Amino acid sequence: MRILQKLSAVFLLAVLGIASSHAAVLIYGTRVVYNEASRDTLVRLSNEGNIPLLIQAWLDTGEDKPVAEQQVPFVIAPPVFRMNAHQGQVLRISYTGEALPQDKESVFWLNVLEIPPKPTATGQQNTLQIAVRNRIKLFFRPTALAEGPKDLGSALQWQLTGEGEHMSVTVRNPTTFFASFLDAYVTADGTSYELATDMVAPGTTATFPLLKPTRLPGRVQGVRFKLIDDIGAAIAGAASLDGNISSQSSKKD
Protein backbone atom coordinates (compact mmCIF):
# COMPACT_ATOMS: atom_id res chain seq x y z
CA MET A 1 0.00 0.00 0.00
CA ARG A 2 1.34 3.40 -0.92
CA ILE A 3 0.24 6.26 1.27
CA LEU A 4 1.98 9.56 0.86
CA GLN A 5 2.84 11.28 4.08
CA LYS A 6 3.20 15.02 3.31
CA LEU A 7 3.88 16.65 6.62
CA SER A 8 6.15 19.68 6.12
CA ALA A 9 8.00 21.86 3.60
CA VAL A 10 11.38 23.52 3.90
CA PHE A 11 12.07 26.64 1.83
CA LEU A 12 15.40 26.55 -0.01
CA LEU A 13 15.31 29.60 -2.31
CA ALA A 14 12.88 32.50 -2.57
CA VAL A 15 13.40 35.11 -5.26
CA LEU A 16 10.54 37.02 -6.91
CA GLY A 17 7.95 34.61 -8.21
CA ILE A 18 6.05 31.80 -6.51
CA ALA A 19 5.54 28.31 -7.95
CA SER A 20 3.47 25.55 -6.39
CA SER A 21 5.16 22.29 -5.45
CA HIS A 22 3.85 18.85 -4.56
CA ALA A 23 5.72 15.92 -3.09
CA ALA A 24 6.83 13.52 -5.80
CA VAL A 25 8.34 10.82 -3.58
CA LEU A 26 6.10 8.04 -2.31
CA ILE A 27 6.97 5.94 0.71
CA TYR A 28 5.54 2.43 0.48
CA GLY A 29 3.71 1.98 3.78
CA THR A 30 2.54 4.27 6.55
CA ARG A 31 4.97 3.09 9.22
CA VAL A 32 8.02 0.91 9.76
CA VAL A 33 8.09 -1.84 12.40
CA TYR A 34 11.63 -2.89 13.25
CA ASN A 35 11.83 -6.21 15.09
CA GLU A 36 14.94 -6.41 17.26
CA ALA A 37 15.87 -9.84 15.92
CA SER A 38 16.01 -8.54 12.35
CA ARG A 39 19.37 -7.82 10.78
CA ASP A 40 17.82 -4.82 9.04
CA THR A 41 14.58 -3.63 7.47
CA LEU A 42 13.90 -2.19 4.03
CA VAL A 43 11.79 0.81 3.02
CA ARG A 44 10.84 1.29 -0.62
CA LEU A 45 10.61 4.72 -2.22
CA SER A 46 9.39 5.82 -5.64
CA ASN A 47 9.85 9.09 -7.54
CA GLU A 48 6.46 9.63 -9.19
CA GLY A 49 7.49 13.00 -10.63
CA ASN A 50 8.94 13.96 -13.99
CA ILE A 51 12.30 15.32 -12.81
CA PRO A 52 15.27 13.82 -10.96
CA LEU A 53 15.53 14.61 -7.26
CA LEU A 54 18.23 14.68 -4.63
CA ILE A 55 17.03 12.66 -1.62
CA GLN A 56 18.23 12.88 1.96
CA ALA A 57 17.02 10.33 4.54
CA TRP A 58 17.52 10.28 8.31
CA LEU A 59 15.93 9.21 11.60
CA ASP A 60 15.15 11.34 14.63
CA THR A 61 13.51 10.94 18.02
CA GLY A 62 10.87 13.63 17.50
CA GLU A 63 12.47 15.84 20.13
CA ASP A 64 12.56 19.61 19.69
CA LYS A 65 16.32 19.90 19.33
CA PRO A 66 18.92 19.54 16.55
CA VAL A 67 19.08 16.09 14.99
CA ALA A 68 22.80 15.89 15.76
CA GLU A 69 21.96 16.01 19.48
CA GLN A 70 19.42 13.19 19.33
CA GLN A 71 20.38 9.62 20.16
CA VAL A 72 19.16 7.38 17.33
CA PRO A 73 20.50 3.79 17.35
CA PHE A 74 20.02 3.20 13.63
CA VAL A 75 21.90 3.84 10.40
CA ILE A 76 20.33 4.37 6.97
CA ALA A 77 21.93 3.43 3.67
CA PRO A 78 22.10 5.34 1.47
CA PRO A 79 21.57 8.58 3.46
CA VAL A 80 21.87 10.82 0.37
CA PHE A 81 21.26 9.84 -3.25
CA ARG A 82 19.84 10.91 -6.60
CA MET A 83 16.56 9.37 -7.73
CA ASN A 84 15.56 9.76 -11.34
CA ALA A 85 12.01 10.38 -12.51
CA HIS A 86 9.77 7.30 -12.32
CA GLN A 87 12.51 5.31 -10.61
CA GLY A 88 12.62 3.59 -7.23
CA GLN A 89 15.08 3.24 -4.38
CA VAL A 90 15.35 1.02 -1.33
CA LEU A 91 16.48 2.37 2.05
CA ARG A 92 18.17 -0.13 4.33
CA ILE A 93 17.75 0.64 8.05
CA SER A 94 20.00 -1.22 10.51
CA TYR A 95 19.88 -1.28 14.32
CA THR A 96 23.29 -0.49 15.84
CA GLY A 97 22.64 -2.30 19.11
CA GLU A 98 22.47 0.51 21.67
CA ALA A 99 20.28 -0.27 24.65
CA LEU A 100 16.54 0.34 24.20
CA PRO A 101 13.69 -0.66 26.54
CA GLN A 102 12.98 -4.39 26.41
CA ASP A 103 9.55 -4.25 28.07
CA LYS A 104 7.87 -1.83 25.64
CA GLU A 105 8.05 -0.38 22.14
CA SER A 106 10.16 2.66 21.28
CA VAL A 107 9.30 5.12 18.51
CA PHE A 108 11.46 7.11 16.09
CA TRP A 109 10.72 9.12 12.93
CA LEU A 110 11.94 8.35 9.41
CA ASN A 111 12.40 11.52 7.35
CA VAL A 112 12.73 11.61 3.57
CA LEU A 113 13.60 15.03 2.13
CA GLU A 114 13.26 15.58 -1.62
CA ILE A 115 15.28 18.45 -3.09
CA PRO A 116 14.48 19.57 -6.65
CA PRO A 117 17.25 20.54 -9.10
CA LYS A 118 18.18 24.19 -9.53
CA PRO A 119 16.30 25.94 -12.36
CA THR A 120 18.30 26.17 -15.57
CA ALA A 121 16.09 27.99 -18.06
CA THR A 122 16.09 31.80 -17.94
CA GLY A 123 12.33 31.92 -17.41
CA GLN A 124 12.64 29.70 -14.34
CA GLN A 125 15.04 31.92 -12.41
CA ASN A 126 12.38 33.88 -10.52
CA THR A 127 10.77 30.91 -8.80
CA LEU A 128 10.39 29.53 -5.33
CA GLN A 129 12.12 26.19 -4.88
CA ILE A 130 10.69 23.95 -2.18
CA ALA A 131 12.13 20.85 -0.59
CA VAL A 132 9.34 18.59 0.67
CA ARG A 133 9.81 16.32 3.66
CA ASN A 134 7.87 13.07 4.07
CA ARG A 135 7.80 11.69 7.61
CA ILE A 136 6.59 8.35 9.01
CA LYS A 137 7.01 6.54 12.33
CA LEU A 138 9.47 3.74 12.99
CA PHE A 139 8.53 1.47 15.88
CA PHE A 140 11.31 -0.57 17.49
CA ARG A 141 9.85 -3.80 18.84
CA PRO A 142 12.03 -5.78 21.28
CA THR A 143 12.27 -9.54 20.96
CA ALA A 144 9.93 -10.19 23.89
CA LEU A 145 7.16 -8.33 22.03
CA ALA A 146 7.84 -9.78 18.59
CA GLU A 147 4.31 -11.16 18.17
CA GLY A 148 2.87 -7.65 18.20
CA PRO A 149 -0.21 -6.27 19.94
CA LYS A 150 -3.29 -8.44 20.42
CA ASP A 151 -6.65 -6.67 20.86
CA LEU A 152 -4.95 -3.38 21.75
CA GLY A 153 -8.27 -1.50 21.52
CA SER A 154 -9.84 -3.78 24.12
CA ALA A 155 -7.17 -2.89 26.66
CA LEU A 156 -7.60 0.89 26.47
CA GLN A 157 -9.37 2.52 29.42
CA TRP A 158 -11.60 5.55 28.82
CA GLN A 159 -12.97 8.24 31.11
CA LEU A 160 -15.07 11.36 30.51
CA THR A 161 -13.32 14.45 31.88
CA GLY A 162 -13.81 18.23 31.83
CA GLU A 163 -17.13 20.00 31.75
CA GLY A 164 -19.27 22.30 29.63
CA GLU A 165 -17.62 23.32 26.35
CA HIS A 166 -14.31 21.97 27.66
CA MET A 167 -15.49 18.38 27.78
CA SER A 168 -12.77 15.85 26.94
CA VAL A 169 -12.04 12.14 27.09
CA THR A 170 -9.02 10.67 28.86
CA VAL A 171 -7.60 7.38 27.58
CA ARG A 172 -5.08 5.21 29.41
CA ASN A 173 -2.91 2.77 27.48
CA PRO A 174 -1.80 0.04 29.94
CA THR A 175 -0.16 -2.03 27.19
CA THR A 176 3.47 -2.28 26.06
CA PHE A 177 2.62 -0.99 22.56
CA PHE A 178 1.90 2.45 21.10
CA ALA A 179 -1.75 3.20 20.38
CA SER A 180 -1.92 5.17 17.09
CA PHE A 181 -5.35 6.67 16.47
CA LEU A 182 -6.89 7.39 13.10
CA ASP A 183 -9.84 9.11 14.78
CA ALA A 184 -12.14 8.97 17.81
CA TYR A 185 -15.67 10.22 18.53
CA VAL A 186 -17.71 10.61 21.69
CA THR A 187 -21.43 9.88 21.29
CA ALA A 188 -24.12 11.86 23.11
CA ASP A 189 -27.87 11.40 22.48
CA GLY A 190 -27.11 9.55 19.25
CA THR A 191 -24.84 12.28 17.80
CA SER A 192 -21.09 11.82 17.38
CA TYR A 193 -18.57 14.55 18.26
CA GLU A 194 -14.99 14.21 16.99
CA LEU A 195 -12.08 14.23 19.42
CA ALA A 196 -8.61 15.66 18.75
CA THR A 197 -6.55 12.48 19.02
CA ASP A 198 -2.84 11.76 19.35
CA MET A 199 -0.62 8.73 19.70
CA VAL A 200 -0.61 7.29 23.23
CA ALA A 201 2.66 5.77 24.41
CA PRO A 202 2.85 2.48 26.38
CA GLY A 203 1.84 2.85 30.02
CA THR A 204 0.76 6.48 29.66
CA THR A 205 -2.45 8.51 29.69
CA ALA A 206 -3.58 11.17 27.20
CA THR A 207 -6.50 13.58 27.13
CA PHE A 208 -8.43 14.08 23.89
CA PRO A 209 -10.46 17.33 23.83
CA LEU A 210 -13.40 17.88 21.52
CA LEU A 211 -12.14 18.95 18.10
CA LYS A 212 -14.80 21.67 18.07
CA PRO A 213 -15.52 22.76 21.66
CA THR A 214 -19.22 22.51 22.39
CA ARG A 215 -21.55 21.62 25.24
CA LEU A 216 -22.65 18.02 24.78
CA PRO A 217 -26.42 17.54 24.91
CA GLY A 218 -27.94 15.00 27.27
CA ARG A 219 -26.25 11.76 28.30
CA VAL A 220 -22.95 10.55 26.85
CA GLN A 221 -23.25 6.96 25.63
CA GLY A 222 -19.62 6.12 24.90
CA VAL A 223 -16.71 6.52 22.51
CA ARG A 224 -15.96 5.13 19.03
CA PHE A 225 -12.39 5.00 17.70
CA LYS A 226 -10.07 3.59 15.03
CA LEU A 227 -6.54 2.43 15.71
CA ILE A 228 -3.92 1.96 12.97
CA ASP A 229 -2.14 -1.39 12.97
CA ASP A 230 1.28 -2.46 11.66
CA ILE A 231 0.21 -2.57 8.00
CA GLY A 232 -1.84 0.65 8.05
CA ALA A 233 -5.23 -1.03 8.46
CA ALA A 234 -7.81 0.74 10.62
CA ILE A 235 -9.07 -1.30 13.58
CA ALA A 236 -12.44 0.04 14.73
CA GLY A 237 -13.65 -0.25 18.31
CA ALA A 238 -16.21 1.19 20.70
CA ALA A 239 -16.15 1.50 24.47
CA SER A 240 -18.19 2.80 27.34
CA LEU A 241 -16.40 5.49 29.27
CA ASP A 242 -15.55 3.10 32.10
CA GLY A 243 -13.51 1.05 29.65
CA ASN A 244 -16.03 -1.74 28.85
CA ILE A 245 -15.80 -2.66 25.18
CA SER A 246 -19.09 -2.92 23.32
CA SER A 247 -17.79 -3.87 19.85
CA GLN A 248 -14.67 -4.26 17.78
CA SER A 249 -14.05 -4.86 14.07
CA SER A 250 -11.44 -4.13 11.45
CA LYS A 251 -11.28 -2.65 7.96
CA LYS A 252 -8.62 -1.53 5.51
CA ASP A 253 -7.54 2.12 5.81
Results as ranks from 00 to 15, higher is better:
residue 25 V to S: 02
residue 50 N to H: 05
residue 240 S to Q: 14
residue 113 L to F: 13
residue 220 V to P: 01
residue 170 T to R: 14
residue 240 S to R: 14
residue 35 N to H: 14
residue 194 E to A: 14
residue 150 K to T: 04
residue 75 V to T: 07
residue 10 V to K: 05
residue 165 E to Y: 12
residue 69 E to L: 15
residue 243 G to N: 01
residue 114 E to Y: 09
residue 199 M to T: 08
residue 123 G to M: 07
residue 94 S to G: 00
residue 85 A to E: 07
residue 188 A to N: 04
residue 142 P to H: 13
residue 246 S to A: 04
residue 123 G to H: 11
residue 6 K to S: 11
residue 34 Y to L: 13
residue 95 Y to I: 02
residue 171 V to F: 15
residue 219 R to H: 12
residue 179 A to K: 04
residue 16 L to H: 08
residue 89 Q to Y: 05
residue 191 T to A: 15
residue 238 A to S: 14
residue 8 S to R: 11
residue 53 L to S: 02
residue 90 V to T: 13
residue 7 L to H: 04
residue 241 L to A: 09
residue 27 I to A: 07
residue 63 E to D: 13
residue 116 P to D: 01
residue 204 T to C: 02
residue 64 D to K: 08
residue 155 A to L: 14
residue 128 L to V: 13
residue 163 E to G: 14
residue 234 A to V: 07
residue 79 P to D: 08
residue 167 M to F: 00
residue 38 S to Y: 08
residue 147 E to W: 07
residue 117 P to D: 06
residue 237 G to Y: 06
residue 46 S to W: 13
residue 109 W to P: 04
residue 72 V to A: 08
residue 173 N to C: 14
residue 83 M to Q: 01
residue 173 N to R: 00
residue 209 P to Y: 02
residue 36 E to H: 06
residue 137 K to S: 12
residue 76 I to L: 06
residue 169 V to N: 04
residue 79 P to E: 11
residue 49 G to H: 05
residue 61 T to V: 07
residue 83 M to K: 03
residue 159 Q to I: 06
residue 194 E to K: 09
residue 155 A to Q: 15
residue 43 V to P: 03
residue 52 P to M: 09
residue 156 L to C: 12
residue 178 F to V: 03
residue 32 V to Q: 00
residue 11 F to D: 15
residue 109 W to Q: 10
residue 29 G to Q: 06
residue 54 L to G: 00
residue 64 D to N: 10
residue 4 L to K: 03
residue 149 P to D: 09
residue 131 A to C: 10
residue 37 A to I: 14
residue 101 P to F: 10
residue 36 E to R: 12
residue 212 K to S: 12
residue 28 Y to C: 09
residue 127 T to F: 05
residue 141 R to G: 05
residue 153 G to Q: 03
residue 211 L to I: 04
residue 105 E to W: 02
residue 164 G to K: 09
residue 172 R to A: 13
residue 166 H to F: 12
residue 171 V to I: 11
residue 179 A to D: 08
residue 39 R to E: 12
residue 218 G to S: 04
residue 206 A to Y: 09
residue 173 N to G: 11
residue 103 D to G: 03
residue 145 L to H: 02
